[in-house]
Design a protein around this nucleic acid. Structure first.
Lengths: 219, 219
DNA sequence: CCTCACTTTACAAATTCGATACGATCTCTT
DNA sequence: AAGAGATCGTATCGAATTTGTAAAGTGAGG
């Protein structure tokens, strides 16, 4: 669920990492050189950087040094198993230092630790200009905070996690309210309405007559 | 620099770790069993826990589970090199997972990373004009001392170390007061209120109705 | 007995949430 | 195409819940 920059000069390793990240639900971008990495990171948009130590030209440690000002979290990946290198990397402010070869699952787990720690990661849902952070319990629209009540918040989460799926009122009631409701009630409609209004979702949170609602997946 | 608890059933390993910590300028205490560890940690006073996974009786993972409420940082030490174990340990909220055998210098480097990250290396937390020194147990606002009671002090620490995180009253009760409370109580509200008043946090320590409280991260 | 820290009580204020109501829209039959 | 009946959108409102805060109560320690 995060956008991650891979800085790695060997293509087949980069591809392996990319496959691992995809498996973990992340997106990634790859660059081969330290100088490119600095540019890309300066541009922003990455929640984490996986940084190879041995790079042609500017090496990983140098990149890290120049990166201190930004506060993008960095995990070093290195074939150098020597303690001195690990110590140096960690001293420089890296979040972790993983030696190659590593297990894909361990990489994912360590990435999750870093993301969780930074308050991002798996508990952030994004949809267009809408951003929902489960950890801090905040929702922003184009960067501005939007106040949602707990029910609204929960309903939004359900929709965001079930995009493009038709959700009946009964299903929503049981998922958000937690009870099985028999008779009829406008409760769901009203909360859907409030979400549409507060988050400008009128066009995308569509009504399926006699069926329920569906949040269209972002194009 | 820090007081560290070693939970390890093999004495010679514990001694080696102790020597390493001393080398790094830390002090340490050693216990052999998970249950002892829980007691000691409950008593407070440790800035970090080094937790062996394979322990007689209560194993490291179980100790960690029961520790979640406290937010003492934990580094797992384990002879289990299997990825599943590492993933499990990290998922449980550990700060790091180091496989035995490890290099003393790497252990020290990783400990420093954790301590630095938790702001406990210096034992000073800062938030705008607020400065909290854990060592001397003082809090200042714009340089002037503010008298806080122990509970207020602890509550402030929890908020400062968990900025931008929604914290429920239950969670706060368990983190600050140390008990699991079932019924309702206005205790948390009142202490929050006093913090807001004494430290001019009314705008930044926000109420999330029906959820809890959140201290907004400093911009 | 006093003080201090903490908790409970009590009530006012704020917020959430669902009911109701009614017009708009959709669907299906004639 | 018209109309009936069902379904949905949405404004309004009040009850219930939750929170803020003052004030009183509790209990440990001096």
């Amino acid at each position: 669920m995060a956008h991650i920059l891979i800085v790695e000069d060997e293509e087949h390793i980069a591809q392996m990492i990319d496959a691992t990240l995809t498996l973990g639900g992340h997106t990634s971008q790859w660059c081969e050189q330290g100088s490119q990495a600095l540019e890309l990171i300066g541009g922003g948009g990455f929640e984490l950087v996986l940084l190879d130590v041995m790079l042609p030209g500017l090496d990983g440690f140098s990149v890290m040094e120049q990166l201190r000002a930004q506060d993008a979290p960095v995990i070093f990946l290195s074939a150098m198993q020597q303690v001195e290198d690990k110590v140096r990397g960690l001293r420089l402010g890296a979040e972790d230092y993983i030696s190659k070869p590593f297990e894909p699952l361990e990489l994912l787990a360590r990435i999750d630790v870093v993301l969780r720690r930074r308050g991002r990661g798996r508990n952030v849902l994004e949809y267009g200009a809408i951003r929902q952070e489960l950890g801090s319990h905040t929702v922003t629209l184009r960067g501005e905070a939007v106040a949602l009540s707990p029910k609204e918040f929960e309903l939004l989460r359900v929709f965001l996690q079930n995009q493009n799926l038709a959700l009946s009122r009964e299903k929503l009631l049981s998922m958000v309210w937690g009870y099985e409701y028999a008779g009829e009630s406008r409760t769901v409609d009203i909360h859907v309405q409030r979400l549409r209004q507060k988050l400008e979702l009128t066009d995308r949170l569509v009504t399926l007559p006699r069926i329920g609602y569906r949040l269209e997946r972002m194009p």
